[in-house]
Design a binder for these strands. Structure first.
Lengths: 193, 193
DNA sequence: CGCGACGTTGATTTGCCTCAACGATTGTGG
DNA sequence: CCACAATCGTTGAGGCAAATCAACGTCGCG
């Protein structure tokens, strides 16, 4: 069963026993998402915390010129949401779009809070999930303020090898904060070495 | 009493009752830190989660060329640590240094876990603290990949007005990911407008 | 007093962007 | 399943943003 992927995600933290699995299963919604389908759009309120069981998503913001800026890729085993919109119920500034046919499990804020209240283990687990996300994001800040485009590209390849073959370079460029043209040049220069 | 500043920090989340305040007070260490004193150095293990009651700190990484890159400023009311080093007990990659005479409260990992276990409210509160930090950090990633130096400087002024007069421009430049010389030019150009 | 950190300016160089063009690949509707 | 459209990857010319390097005056501090 595909919901096993959700359960086993918690094995990275405090694993769930069968009662807790039942608890969780009763509060998530399973959805099938098509490629190019949005699960969140700008100005929507983010109503769900999403676990990706299969497939891949991008979370991005669109600037005044209409250019997309990728903030996160989320593939199998990753969690994603628009955190400000979700907790403060403010209009989302970002889009979340499937870049592959996907299967997800979503949990609403009331259901999530119910889990938090019913069992401290959920508080703990979701705290650790957020902490891991913070580590990733801080690393990215450091790279952005201290590394060249080439260094950032090499770091991306190293950190997300499983994404490399699944993403067009335009998406990677957007994530790295450079133009597709310049990424092409970076790749060419790397091949010479 | 200065420890009131620590207690009232939780009023932003789930406020503590007096039993919980006592619990917390019994597990934190109060320290006075001099300007230019380090509370964490590279390769140390980060043993404490730190709350700044008075003063200001910078958290930064030093690259191969010896250049500092500021990842975070923490003034009164802010929490800081090296999250990877703290949780995984790995050598820290960053330094944390006081840039003003400061008073802090520190909690060790065992004591923090004791609070987590004794009362889910602490799990909850520290989860929210981390979530807020993630929001800040994600905003910074977005700015880094999509904004010019001038835009980032203006955003910094707007977001941290209380820090502006307390920091030399070299430190702000390091935070923004630009050279002090270029920040000087940005400021000059802004004055013309 | 003297030294080191700071802020600024100018000249030069470099990293990256913009715009335009093109073939190759992918996706899609008929 | 094919034909056409859209997206993608690449290249090159030119321009701009930001770094580098050097110099100099100011200020706080020991």
């Amino acid at each position: 069963m595909i919901i096993e992927k959700l359960f086993s995600n918690f094995d990275n933290y405090l694993p769930l026993n069968s009662a807790e699995k039942q608890d969780l299963a009763g509060r998530v919604i399973q959805r099938k998402i098509k490629r190019k389908q949005f699960i969140l759009q700008e100005n929507d309120i983010c109503k769900h915390y999403t676990f990706v069981a299969e497939g891949c998503f991008k979370k991005f913001q669109v600037d005044d010129k209409g250019t997309e800026h990728n903030l996160q890729f989320a593939a199998e085993g990753d969690w994603l949401m628009e955190i400000v919109s979700f907790y403060l119920e403010k209009p989302s500034r970002v889009y979340i779009e499937a870049i592959e046919p996907s299967v997800i499990f979503q949990i609403s804020k009331p259901d999530l809070y119910h889990l938090y209240d019913s069992n401290p283990k959920f508080d703990r687990n979701f705290r650790v999930i957020i902490e891991n996300r913070l580590v990733e994001t801080e690393n990215r800040v450091l790279q952005a303020i201290s590394s060249t485009a080439e260094e950032r590209y090499l770091a991306f390849i190293k950190q997300y090898p499983h994404l490399l073959s699944r993403l067009p370079n335009t998406q990677i460029a957007s994530y790295l904060g450079i133009t597709p043209e310049f990424l092409s040049k970076v790749r060419k220069d790397l091949l010479k070495k």
